[in-house]
Each structure stands twice: as structure tokens, then as C-alpha cells.
Design a protein around this nucleic acid. Structure first.
Lengths: 201, 201
DNA sequence: GCGCAATGTTAACGCCGTTAACACGACATC
DNA sequence: GATGTCGTGTTAACGGCGTTAACATTGCGC
């Protein structure tokens, strides 16, 4: 009399174990059958909760974007420019702490856009934090009043690129020093009204 | 009497067809069996030329890095700073022209580093072009004499990040205007001796 | 207490990477 | 020219995968 024929909350546990699998072994290891084995359930059972494997991966990526957004929102500084650089560093820290998750979020496996609307929305939500903090910095007179659009694109490109290159080991070792992330996030920002942040390297 | 029991140059044709498959349908579609079907050959035949599927993908990525290097080397400008921005734009153009190849090169499927030495070497070869052009710009008095290491990391991060974000559709549409690539590649560079390149947006 | 909907299992399909055993044929050696 | 060897192809088979259809069990509303 297996008292757990009905598992109870397979959906939640599946997400948790899938996150563990992703974190430990990468997206390729997030297999419906492997996940089912971990949960002591047969593979087709998972189809009651996920349309297919891609939907499961999309759900993981979506959670990743939601978590990233929260970590960016948690950066609080008085000065708008300091907050912007802090956000950049938090972004990089997120990617370095969970490289497999980050690769799933940006690896391009879940394309095309529109296939997973919730995922797209979560991605925009994270992007919005960065965008807002740039607007705030501009309002505070920083960034030489450059147009917000290209600035945002450049800022995101910089942190995203640095995050990916470091977690994939593409940058030479000496350029992976812990402090470099901070340095890089400041290179883009050639000053503004208060001068307590020169690019004094 | 199939006159082509011995195929002749299966290795070269396999690489070509694999490139086509990759370009048209992405890395997931580059399957040994699908490739064998295209070549009118059985799947195990490919194991005479590639250790396994990963080696095939690594060979494709390696060719990508070699081609990228050539395209960067082909950028010739008199002014060192102009050449640097030209290289950034050529880099982005490469990624946008062959998104599936670019994702394979940087998607992190071929890790860990050291698993495919030829691939690692080719990657470093492409990186070296960028590094050299930054050294040249510094020698010409540009970039405010900032340290070369972080500068290189930041420059590569910027172009790599922008390339990936655009080919994956993460940037809002208005920020994908053709000219934006040029703009972004200049944001990083706050001038130098000659002033014919302000950040006049 | 009954019935239905939710949620699990079993069995099976085709595709995949990979390996072992075998077959063909070009090319060197005698 | 016969012969043997080695490179390169085929055949057959294994297990793992995503996925589906059919069936089984259970909890919950009436």
C-alpha cells in the first residue's frame, strides 16, 4: 500500500531536484529520466507537471531570472552611480555563483523568443532593474547625459560578457582576479558631477 | 560494385556538412546519425575520423575561431583607435552572421577547458588579435594609458556580451538598430590624443 | 458511498551515441 | 601478378533518451 502513489507536491520537488541537478552537473544532465529516478517516480509522471523537457528547462531559467532580479534589487546605495556599479558586481557574482544556471539562462537553448512567455517576462524583469538604475544615474547627472538606450545596452553587454567569459574560462588567469570585476564595471563610466570615482586604476 | 565503398575524403565532407547543419539548425541538430544520412554513409563510419560527437563539435568551434581570427586580422585602418573599433564591429558582425556557430564557440558545451587543446589554442589566437590591437592603441597614446589587462578584458566582454545579447534577442528592438553596434563599441573609449572621436552620440 | 478528475504506472516507439565484429579494397612487398 | 596488411567502410546490437497511449490508483466533491 504505497501511501505515496500520489506524490503530493511532485511539481515543487521536481523543480528543486532539477535545480540541484543543473547546479551540480549542468543542463545536459537535467534529464527527465534522471530527474524521475531522483524522485523515485517514473518518467512519464513528470509530464503531468511539465509539457516537455524544454518547459522544465524554461521553468528553471525563469526562476533564475527571478532570483537574479531579487539580487539586483537588493543592492542599495545612496549614490546612484555607486548603486549602478554595485548592481554590475552583483550581476557578475550571480553568474559566478551559479554558472550552470547562468549558461542555461543565456545559452540560447530556449529560443526562439516567445516559445516560453513566462521566461521572456522574467528576463525583461531582470533587465528592467539595470535599466532603471541607469536612468537614475542619468537623472543624478552622471554618465555625461549620454542617451539611455545605448548606455543600457553597453552596460548589460559589459557585465554579461564579463560574466560569461570568466565562468567559461576564456579570460587569461591574471585577468580573473577577484577585484577585476569591480574594475571592469567602472571602466565604462567616465565620471560625472561628484568626482569621488575616478578611473584611478 | 559501389565504387565508393571508400569514400575518399569523408573527413572534409563531414566537416562541411556539419557546418551546414550547424548553421541551418543549430548545434542540437548536429547529430552523428543525421550527418551520416547527409553523407550517405553509416554512422559508425564517422568514428574513423572523429573520436566522438564532442570532438566533431570541437572541430567546428575550432574552425569558427580560426575564421573569426582571420576576419579580425582583415580589419586594416591607419589609426590605431579606428582599427580597434573596427575590430569590435567585425567581431559583432561575425557573431550576427553565424549565430549558431558563435553559440557553439561560447555556449560552454565544450568545457572543461583542456578537453580539446586545438580548440583552446584557436580561441587564444582570436583573443590575441584583440589584445594586440589594444596594445597598439595604448602605444599610440589612446585609452588614457589605462592598464592593458583590464582594458582587454573589458573590451572583449563588451563585444562578446553585445553579440550574444543581440543574437539571442535579449535587447529590446529599438536597441538593435544596425548603427548601435558601432556606437556601443565606442562607448568604452573615452578619447585620447587626437580628438576626432568624441563620444558625440 | 460514488464518481470523476488528478496523478501516478506500464509498455512501447523511434532517435540518439557508441562499440564490437566483420567486409571491402588500395597499396606495398615479394 | 599474387599476397597480406591496414585504412575505411558496413552490420548488428546495447543502453539511454524524450515522448505517447493505455491503464491504474487515489483523493475530493457531491
Amino acid at each position: 500500500m504505497s501511501s505515496t502513489y500520489h506524490h503530493g507536491d511532485l511539481y515543487r520537488q521536481a523543480l528543486e531536484q532539477a535545480q540541484a541537478l543543473l547546479h551540480e552537473e549542468g543542463a545536459a544532465a537535467v534529464t527527465l529520466r534522471a530527474l524521475a529516478r531522483r524522485l523515485r517516480v517514473t518518467a512519464p509522471a513528470l509530464y503531468r507537471h511539465f509539457r516537455n523537457r524544454d518547459s522544465l528547462l524554461a521553468a528553471l531559467a525563469e526562476h533564475g531570472f527571478l532570483e537574479l532580479r531579487q539580487q539586483l534589487l537588493a543592492v542599495q546605495r545612496d549614490d546612484a552611480l555607486e548603486r549602478l556599479t554595485g548592481i554590475g558586481q552583483a550581476y557578475i557574482a550571480f553568474a559566478q555563483a551559479q554558472p550552470n544556471l547562468y549558461r542555461l539562462m543565456f545559452g540560447g537553448q530556449l529560443l526562439p523568443r516567445g516559445a516560453h512567455p513566462d521566461l521572456d517576462a522574467a528576463g525583461l524583469g531582470a533587465f528592467a532593474v539595470l535599466q532603471q538604475s541607469i536612468d537614475d544615474a542619468l537623472d543624478a547627472g552622471y554618465l555625461n547625459g549620454q542617451p539611455a538606450g545605448p548606455l543600457t545596452a553597453a552596460a548589460w553587454s559589459l557585465v554579461h560578457g564579463f560574466a560569461e567569459l570568466t565562468i567559461d574560462g576564456h579570460l587569461p588567469d591574471e585577468q580573473q582576479a577577484p577585484g577585476l570585476a569591480a574594475l571592469v564595471t567602472r571602466l565604462l563610466l567616465p565620471g560625472g558631477p561628484p568626482s569621488h570615482h575616478d578611473n584611478t586604476l
